[in-house]
Design a protein around this nucleic acid. Structure first.
Lengths: 253, 253
DNA sequence: GCCTAGGTCCCGTAT
DNA sequence: ATACGGGGCCTAGGC
């Protein structure tokens, strides 16, 4: 790891170039102005920020407040550095979309270049995918006698989360939401149900499955003759835990 | 600014506490494990990462690759630090939503605490809002003789971008998209048009306005008897430039 | 390449 | 608090 406090701007160019060539992550804290041009246009006038350039050339510029970066460039962009007019300039060009960022520093307080070893495994659970997996294991969570026949099935323009048959053999389209469902979710479900009705299936039911639903969405749902089933995310996870030997489930408190 | 290379983990607690109390931004580079529990659950096993905690307690944890943070907490959360079992532990609790992050460091390579002055102005143009402003100035961009009567008008469940009258006095609902429009946009427009049809207006037209439109969306649009108008974002911006004395427009190349 | 849908999306805004 | 829609959204998965 290389660290320099208050480096001369002239040296920063070399420092950054070397860091990136060595596949290190570079962090710059300093006073800068920013210009962005691409899908939209932005200007950020002078102030102190944190600039991060990762191994893969992802660029992230943070102000001292707020969760979101003020300017950025996703990974894979091209970084060019320059020293001109007494200032350090860093430009980033995105390959596919025509997008450019130009960060001009008139003062650098700190510069860091670090090779970071990170082979850690990232595991996420409790997303919509998990909800679906739990239902595939135990379709009774939605309704007695339900059988899943397709998942993520193309249904017109989009994809139905689950296509099922109920105890009476009727087609049932299921739309899953892991959080409170809104009107948007109802419209999504309607779209798929209508697709199957249009394409020959007579008795098609549509069920929206989520832990909760907004008042307006529930009203709309009923008006459209669709159904709602409440589901508990924790319950789904505990079902998965039983059927999945993966050790990480044991971490669930 | 305070910087320490390879600080003893025991000292880090004090360092972070002091930094945050002084409204400084704290950056830690080191080896850590992460546990997140809230709307979903995640585990990140050991590796070297960058942790940023901002003045407003926004927490952002970055791996050495990729644009997006692997774990985070938006501003306003509560930060608690601890030294236990030879490790430095930082926990963040979100107030409203029940969400927790726990970052456990077994090695810290660098720690920085910096008061960052940033009063810079951030200006963004070329978003949907600007498209709308340009059309308000010059409705002819869409159609000769068009007059805008409402903007962001509640129309049933959502908000119609623009409500207008055409040369023949018919109601025209306009849906704006600053980028390629998809089926979603068409459905949105349809929803608003149907709302006004249902509520008494007889001849209601719907126009989708965007720089381009997906093939499927255009087909759907026509099937539904809706209309499409291409618009050029740069042209809209140059119109705004004329009518808006704000100096930043001059920065547009 | 286009298109669709999810995300711990975040965020602003209006009700 | 809830709900709705934008975002330079990003990212993954299909086709």
């Amino acid at each position: 790891m290389r660290v320099e406090l208050k480096p001369a701007l002239k040296e920063v160019t070399q420092f950054v170039r070397e860091g990136l060539n060595r596949k290190e992550v570079v962090i710059i804290i300093g006073n800068c102005e920013v210009r962005y041009e691409g899908r939209a246009y932005s200007r950020l006038s002078s102030g102190t920020r944190i600039l991060i350039i990762k191994e893969d050339r992802a660029l992230i510029l943070h102000r001292p407040k707020g969760f979101e970066p003020v300017n950025w460039q996703p990974s894979g962009s091209i970084i060019v550095t320059d020293y001109k007019g007494g200032k350090f300039i860093l430009r980033s060009f995105r390959r596919k979309v025509s997008e450019t960022i130009e960060v001009t520093f008139d003062r650098v307080d700190l510069i860091v270049s670090a090779r970071m070893l990170d082979e850690g495994e990232f595991l996420m659970y409790g997303n919509e995918e998990d909800l679906k997996r739990a239902i595939l294991i135990k379709p009774d969570l939605i309704e007695e006698g339900l059988r899943v026949i397709f998942e993520e099935r193309r249904s017109g323009s989009g994809y139905a989360d689950l296509c099922c048959l109920d105890a009476k053999g009727r087609l049932v389209i299921v739309e899953l939401k892991k959080e409170r469902a809104n009107r948007e979710a109802v419209i999504q479900l309607l779209k798929y149900v209508n697709y199957y009705k249009k394409n020959g299936s007579k008795a098609v039911r549509g069920i929206l499955v989520s832990p909760s639903i907004s008042k307006g969405a529930l009203k709309l749902l009923k008006e459209l003759g669709l159904e709602y089933r409440k589901i508990n995310l924790r319950k789904c996870l505990s079902i998965l835990k039983k059927f999945d030997s993966n050790a990480y489930w044991s971490l669930l408190r």
